[in-house]
Amino acid sequence: MGCVLEARLVGVVEAEQRERDGALERNDRLIGVAVKARTHAHVPTLSDLRPGLLDEVEVFFGLYNQLAGKDIRDHRRGDAEVALALVREGAGAFGRASG
């Protein structure tokens, strides 16, 4: 908490979650690695991550949301281009809402 670092997007886990009130909402998880981390210098894509890591991330967020009374469904995994497109889409929507 309170730490800022430069990260490189390597992909996304696209997901939907059902809120307590029953509403369905997108809740994608961007996956990035620290630019200056020697331990992740070899990770340009999701497939270069440690085997099983994304499975663990998906299970973690599933349990996290379950404890909050929400249900989450993972749709698919996307590469860095898909992740960047989602960031741009979100930034554009934020700009339209606040501008």
Rank of each mutant, 00 (worst) to 15 (best):
T45F: 05
E56W: 03
A34D: 13
R8Y: 04
P51Q: 01
D28K: 05
E25V: 09
H42G: 04
T39V: 08
E56M: 07
E56C: 06
A23W: 00
V12I: 04
G62H: 07
V13K: 04
E81A: 15
K70D: 02
F94K: 08
E16S: 03
A15H: 06
G52Q: 11
E25D: 03
V12M: 00
L67A: 15
K70T: 04
Q66D: 15
E19K: 02
Q17R: 12
F60N: 13
G78A: 00
L46H: 11
G2D: 07
D28H: 10
V87R: 05
V33N: 00
G2P: 01
M1Q: 14
F94T: 01
R18G: 03
I72N: 00
E81R: 14
R77I: 05
A23R: 06
V33G: 00
A7L: 14
R77T: 04
R20D: 12
A37R: 11
L84M: 15
V43A: 02
L53F: 14
V82H: 15
V12Y: 00
G11C: 12
A68P: 07
F61P: 02
V4C: 08
Q17C: 05
L30Y: 14
F94V: 06
G95V: 10
D71N: 06
R77N: 02
E6C: 02
D79G: 15
P44Y: 09
H42T: 12
E89V: 05
Q66N: 13
E14K: 11
N65S: 03
M1C: 09
C3G: 09
A85W: 01
I72F: 00
R8E: 06
L30H: 08
L5P: 04
R18W: 09
L30M: 11
Q17V: 00
R50L: 08
A85I: 03
G62Q: 12
G62E: 13
G62D: 09
E56D: 12
V82Y: 12
F60T: 06
A80T: 13
L67C: 14
N65M: 07
G22A: 09
R96N: 04
F60P: 07
V10Y: 11
F60Y: 13
M1T: 11
G69I: 09
L67R: 15
G22N: 05
D79C: 12
Q66A: 15
H75V: 13
V57C: 08
E25T: 06
V82K: 12
R38G: 08
Y64G: 02
H40S: 14
F60S: 11
A37I: 08
V87M: 11
V13T: 10
H40R: 11
K70A: 05
V4G: 10
G69A: 09
G2N: 07
V82N: 05
R29D: 01
Q17D: 04
V59F: 14
G52S: 11
E14I: 08
G22T: 02
V35N: 01
